[in-house]
Design a protein around this nucleic acid. Sequence first.
DNA 1: TTCCTTATGTTGTACTCTACAACCATCTAG
DNA 2: CTAGATGGTTGTAGAGTACAACATAAGGAA
Lengths: 157, 157
Amino acid sequence: MTERDRSGSGGGARDDSIEIIQREMTAFARRARATAARMHPELSLVSFTLLGHLEYQGGCRATDLAAHYTLDKSTISRQAGALEKAGLVERRLDPADHRVHVLHLTERGHEVLAQVGAARRVAFQERLAEWSGPDLAQFAGYLLRYNAAAEREVEAE
Amino acid sequence: MTERDRSGSGGGARDDSIEIIQREMTAFARRARATAARMHPELSLVSFTLLGHLEYQGGCRATDLAAHYTLDKSTISRQAGALEKAGLVERRLDPADHRVHVLHLTERGHEVLAQVGAARRVAFQERLAEWSGPDLAQFAGYLLRYNAAAEREVEAE
DNA sequence: TTCCTTATGTTGTACTCTACAACCATCTAG
DNA sequence: CTAGATGGTTGTAGAGTACAACATAAGGAA
């Protein structure tokens, strides 16, 4: 790239990198759902994420999930309904506030999550098998940094 | 499994990095469509990608798009139909093979793609504004490397 | 040539994910 | 106790996708 810094901070090399980042993130996003569905048809990308959140948090309210994932409460309600019907979560009425349904993983929910999580982990490990430790660490760091910025945008609305 | 064995090449630090990569890529994928829809409602992530491909390739067949993006031909057919109805692409009957419809961007297609592409570019540039040039370049390189590996998996099926 | 097979697309159908709006139940402030 | 806020569910609708059935066109084989 011979074009250097036209105008201060916005150089050509920067633009090239940003273009690539944009394109590759997009390509990944486009592929992700289908890949997830192919790997474990019993748990969509969203369901997996929600279950993971429930496990990490040890149960939470539908509203919190909706806020955290920028999803409509109706979407969460239906996802939770499906997961409940599948026997992976249960809704417990909050004794302190009867409007609230606290979602908890069932035993089976923990199992399925662990199993699907293991499958995903294996897939990522294979995909990243040739990477050096420092490269992995740095890539992970970049992704954290990127997503933190993206998250702030959503919150700023 | 929270305890890892640290035998041979599979160290704990590696696993931690891979865990983060997995989680963050997933988080990004979950958010991408909605973000794209919010930024430019007139062109979904998929439509944008397809138009971009057409521009880059200078027109191609529906089958090629389906193969390249691992989408069903019916999906491509309908996406193409919608884009045609929106006046962004046209289907030209291939004179050499009357089964084939070659998809081309219209003038308006080029315009809309350029406009949406610019909006996306700005969004990414803002999101990445604080990054140093070398960090951008390295992040871009990691993403290319990652997606290349993911792509090989799909092809291997 | 005629027939069988393959390749390209389109259409019918169905399912998931999602949003928005209307609604009900419950809580909290005044 | 009433008003408004909060948490959730349900009705409705639209996008995106897949799979199966089909129509049409090529390309060979007999």
